[in-house]
Amino acid sequence: MKAFPLPSARVRALLVAGLIGLLPVLSGMLVLRWQVTRTFEFQAQHVAGEAVRQLDSMIDQAAQSAQRLMPLAGKPCNAAVIQAILQEVTIEPYVRSANLVRNHDAYCSSFYGAYKRAVEPGEYFNRHLLLRASNPVTPNEASLVYRLYEHPRGVRTVIDGRTLAEALRLIQGDTVLIMQVGNAFLWGDSSIQDGEIPDHQAHHTSQVSERHGYRVHSGFSPEKAWELWRIQGLSTLGGLLLLGVLTGGVCHWLLRRQQRP
């Protein structure tokens, strides 16, 4: 059998130097991947926390309006009561409308005045919040209803879904923010989706509001994660390659020096 000739000492030195030169490149890329992943996770958690704080502030205003209107609940829907409801809606920037409830029937509204519409308590998450895709006032837009009820009377205050979605868009930056109330999900474009949250997010995290119980999901889409990773990788790859070339060159020089008679 014909034996293959062994590579010369010069070729062996080049191979060893090349392998050694690849080590800082490979180890640097692994460290970079870990750092980028940690950065994504930290940013997703930070953005989710900021979103919870902002949304809590908006819902707090709706809750405070409901508390102030509670003494009116159960009273006849006359001009004085309607005027008081309108005044409350006017002074609160995040409250779009309000209505009074009696025996699970909404009967006095800042939009309609005296009317009657059944209120289903089982629809409300944690007995207080309802995220709905549409309503009679804005049939094509989402809204969040805050319900305060002490049988047999109560108050409902409404926040426009577009206001909530705008808050999400201002905070999210490169992330994707979604507000979850029960089984309903509000996206940054103010659309509502029922069911499980879509699974197309990378580096996903979520935080729950301690005051109101809703959840905010935060993460990066695969496209955005790859784009940010590519930018970080390209900015670092040049330095790693230079370090690899220098390391390999030094190793090759040392090996050739040892091989000299």
Rank of each mutant, 00 (worst) to 15 (best):
A44N: 07
Q83V: 02
Q87P: 00
V52E: 06
E150Q: 12
F40M: 14
H46W: 09
V216L: 09
K2G: 13
V216C: 09
E150P: 01
V176T: 15
A142P: 02
E120C: 00
A167P: 03
A51N: 06
D174W: 06
V11S: 15
V11K: 15
R260E: 12
G239F: 11
M29K: 06
G154V: 01
R215Q: 12
P121R: 04
V208H: 12
P5E: 14
V16E: 04
L23D: 05
A118D: 02
V155R: 04
E88T: 11
E196T: 15
F4I: 07
L228W: 08
V145R: 03
G113T: 06
G122D: 08
C251N: 07
E227W: 01
S218A: 13
R147Y: 10
T163N: 08
T163G: 13
L177K: 13
L6E: 14
A9E: 03
M58C: 04
V176P: 00
V181T: 05
G173F: 08
E210H: 09
Y115P: 09
I59G: 01
E210W: 03
G18S: 15
A202D: 11
I178C: 04
G239I: 08
N103S: 10
G21Y: 06
G238Q: 10
R132E: 09
V81C: 03
H204L: 15
L243C: 07
L32G: 03
A202P: 05
A142Q: 08
L228P: 12
I85D: 14
P93W: 12
V36D: 13
L246T: 00
A165Q: 07
S218F: 11
P136Q: 14
D174I: 02
Q172L: 03
E166K: 12
Q193I: 05
E123W: 02
E227S: 13
R162F: 10
F111D: 14
Y94C: 04
I231R: 07
L130C: 02
V47M: 05
D174K: 14
V145M: 04
A225G: 05
A44G: 10
H200W: 05
P121W: 01
G213M: 06
C251Y: 03
H217V: 14
T236P: 00
S8P: 14
R53G: 14
E50F: 08
Q232Y: 09
A225R: 04
G173N: 07
M1V: 00
V25W: 02
R96Q: 15
R10M: 03
Y115C: 09
E210T: 10
G188C: 08
